[in-house]
Amino acid sequence: MSAVLNEQAAPVPVLEGWFTLDQQRPHLLGTRCTACGTYYFPKLKGYCRNPDCNGESFEEVPLSRSGKLWSFTNASYQPPEPYVQVDKDAFVPFAIAAVELEKEKMIVLGQVVAGTGVESLRAGLTMELVLEPLADGKLTWKWKPVA
């Protein structure tokens, strides 16, 4: 009985190791070159891609939880697999945000939280990272406008 409860309670991420599972203050997990400071998301190991850097050592770092909305769109139709498929009539269009992280100087994509459509978005809005499940129950990161 308790094993079943635990199983239900344990959140399963859509991508293992891409973000923390802290429901209140989740972070995307990237790496940073210890030589030149360049951030990587998804995580890069091995060799730094900055053409002026010979760095081969990386540290795992949580990325900033908020940034400015660079641009946005939506998915009016259900994306193809491997996106989790639901019945065609049950599909609810969702918005997608490109958010600029100031400290990392990078733009990261992600869905926008359910219930927030493109009509309520404007470039420059502050967006913060939250976790929400996809249709298969697995958690993904999403961007949410800060009220």
């Binding site: 951030y39 990587y40 053409p51 850097c53 990392e104 100087k105 990078m106």
Partner: peptide, 10 residues
């Protein structure tokens, strides 16, 4: 891609 490169160093 899911993100741009980071422009911290260049």
């Amino acid at each position: 891609d899911i993100a741009t490169d980071s422009a911290v160093a260049v």
